[in-house]
């Protein structure tokens, strides 16, 4: 298993948010996570990426067999975990190119690869920007500053494509994208799919899952995974909402809650 989450509980300022998450994601798999607003999806994603504002009160998480929870955020990234932010942060005064080159080389050093020089970096960046439909001048602008909502999301996928993570968690990367952008982003994600990588897609909509078909779908409510199923669960949620699931303990196809 690439990612194994067992009985994860977490809180912020003494307020419990995650209340016993069990989830396993194998290499090569795509998982979708859905759930009502405020159910804890972003909390889970940020916690996995190493955000320190959340306190884990119980449970374990391993990433490729290593204890993820004791790694600092930057080490998790260098180990191959990537989070596409629901709300990407603006970094005024820091050029996108400088930022990304620093990130790429930090990851490459960790993997024992040689650092990219300015030219190699530019060549790689150009190719990936084309893939996600970002113009080259975005390289020279400050990170996300003044980017439109859709441009920020494309920039996230651009970063992902450059960093080549083993596990990518996409937190509502589809929200706020127009139809064309959605397809472009999906293509970017699909280009990353491989037998040794895994992707967790957090979304409210079936639309993105038409392009990135998940192997498994999970519904998070009240800080727990209340139902797991296949790709069809996402369609059911789209049609029927969450009311029928909330409180349920078994998924529609009878699978146990913690999908294995």
């Amino acid at each position: 298993m690439l990612l194994r989450i067992h009985d994860l509980h977490a809180e912020i300022d003494g307020k419990p948010i995650l209340r016993g998450i069990d989830l396993e994601v194998g290499a090569g798999e795509v998982h979708a996570v859905m759930g009502p607003n405020g159910s804890g999806k972003s909390t889970l994603a940020q916690l996995l990426a190493g955000r320190e504002v959340y306190t884990v009160t119980r449970g374990e998480v391993t990433f490729d067999g290593k204890n993820l929870l004791e790694m600092p955020a930057d080490l998790r990234a260098r180990e191959g975990l990537f989070l596409s932010f629901q709300y990407p942060i603006e970094l005024p005064g820091i050029a996108n190119s400088y930022f990304l080159k620093a990130a790429v080389n930090a990851v490459r050093r960790h993997r024992g690869l040689s650092e990219l020089d300015a030219v190699d970096f530019l060549v790689a960046a150009r190719a990936k920007m084309k893939l996600v439909g970002l113009r080259e001048d975005f390289l020279h602008r400050s990170v996300n500053e003044g980017f439109s909502g859709g441009e920020k999301k494309r920039n996230e996928i651009f970063q992902m494509a450059m960093l080549e993570p083993r596990l990518a968690i996409l937190d509502e990367t589809d929200s706020g994208l127009d139809v064309d952008a959605l397809r472009t982003v999906a293509e970017g994600v699909n280009s990353l799919r491989s037998p040794d990588r895994a992707i967790v897609v957090i979304t409210h909509y079936q639309r993105l899952l038409d392009y990135i078909v998940p192997d498994k779908t999970h519904v998070l409510a009240g800080g727990r995974i209340v139902r797991s199923g296949g790709a069809e669960l996402a369609r059911e949620v789209e049609e029927r909402g969450y009311g029928w699931i909330t409180g349920a303990t078994e998924s529609s196809d009878g699978m146990p809650v913690a999908a294995a």
């Binding site: 990234a77 942060i89 960790h110």
Partner: peptide
């Protein structure tokens, strides 16, 4: 912002410098 930089693999010291 620090978390964003670190989530891309950048070490705290370099993140703060940036």
């Amino acid at each position: 912002a620090m978390f964003y930089l670190r989530s891309r693999g950048i070490e705290p010291r370099e993140a703060r410098r940036l």
